[in-house]
Computed example of a mutant assay.
Amino acid sequence: MKAIFGTTVLSLSALLSTTAFAQDNSITINSFGGAYETAHRACIITPFEEATGATVNVVTAYSADAFAQLRAQKDAPQFDVIHFSGGQEIVGAAEGLLAPIDPASLSNAADLYDFAGANMAKGEGPAYSIAAIGLVFNTEALSTPPTQWTDLLNPEFGEHLVLTDISNGYGMLGFLMLNQVQGGSLDNIQPGLDAVAKLLDAGAIVVSTSPEIQQEFAQNDAWIAPYASDYAFTLRQAGLPSGFTQGAEGTPASYITTNLVAGRDNTELSLKLIDMSISAEAQECFAEALRYSPTNAKAELSAEVAADVAYGEEGVAGLIRFDPAVIEANRTAWVEQWNKTIAR
């Protein structure tokens, strides 16, 4: 396996050290805490500081909280670069809170898959990682991996199936995919709700958090759960036999984006950080550390890591992004319908 952390510093230092940064040689960003922030520091933040001599001030804030802060501080924002995983960049760009990015200002932009940087000119920052939602399964209980979302309806799974509440972002995406393969759409989630009702009647359970999924796999004979690719890796690290497959019908994707905040002075330094985030080296590091899918076509992963993520042209071809703005507009109503369905 590559010595990724080291090569990130070495390969990017030449690029970044050629510019002398004047005035305030620091920027403020958000990160998501926990294991994510640990990887964020190792793969991007620390190499960036070492290569530029700059200081990166990190505020631990998840997407919704960071966006609320950005809105509240619109006349004097604290963030120079802001990261989202729930599609907030779409709203932020429309509200003028985020600045457009010229792809020519990023040396790695040309290496991104088209979907990852499609709306930079509108102010939507590039996606630097993808949380792919597919089928996490017990490799000992299921010697033949599931291959389709419709496999969730297999009567043999019954009480061995774990669903995640749609108050959880990954749970929402998994449900919307189940709804789609049952003939539903963002305009009609009833087919998905009907499928959930049948699964619950067959013995499936609903959990709310990632640790509860681990508990079900560890203690309650869970075989399969629609969830994110990185969690199969988390389960294996906990000593549980687990694998991940992309359903043949498509792979819902949570885009993790890095965005340039409007109205800040350190644009040049901020763009350097964004450029590092979309580099192949940084994304290889994230994939190895957390099993997030790269958006840089030049990222090279070992066979072990590649098996856990959406990787390469074929892997990313199946990615589906359900419109975050539509999800947000309907979230309250959908959760109410969901709660009525599972209250049985």
Rank of each mutant, 00 (worst) to 15 (best):
F5S: 07
G6F: 15
V9N: 06
S11N: 14
A14W: 15
S17N: 14
N25D: 13
T28K: 08
S31G: 10
G33L: 08
A35D: 09
Y36G: 07
C43G: 07
P47R: 00
F48N: 03
E49R: 02
E50D: 07
E50M: 11
E50Q: 12
V59E: 10
A61I: 09
D65Q: 13
A66G: 12
A68G: 14
F79G: 03
I82R: 05
G86Y: 05
E95W: 12
E95Y: 14
G96A: 07
P100I: 14
N108F: 03
A109E: 00
A110H: 00
D111A: 05
L112D: 08
A116I: 01
M120V: 05
A127S: 15
Y128T: 02
I130H: 10
I130Q: 01
A131H: 02
G134L: 13
V136R: 12
F137S: 06
N138T: 07
T139Q: 09
E140I: 15
S143L: 11
P145V: 11
Q148W: 04
Q148L: 10
W149Q: 06
L161W: 04
L161R: 00
I166Y: 00
M172E: 09
G174P: 04
L176P: 08
N179F: 12
V181W: 09
L186I: 08
P191I: 14
P191C: 09
P191H: 12
L193T: 02
D194C: 11
V196W: 15
S208G: 08
S208M: 08
S208D: 10
Q215N: 09
N220R: 13
D221H: 05
I224K: 01
S229D: 15
Y231S: 07
Y231H: 14
T245K: 03
A253W: 03
A253Q: 03
Y255R: 11
T257P: 10
N259S: 04
V261T: 05
G263A: 05
R264G: 13
R264C: 05
N266Y: 02
E268S: 00
L269E: 01
S270T: 01
L271N: 03
K272E: 08
S277W: 09
A280Q: 04
Y292H: 14
P294T: 11
S302H: 11
S302L: 08
E304H: 13
A307H: 11
V309A: 06
V309S: 10
G315A: 09
G318P: 02
L319Y: 13
F322Q: 08
A325Y: 08
N330R: 11
N330M: 10
W334N: 00
I342Y: 06
I342R: 02
R344I: 06
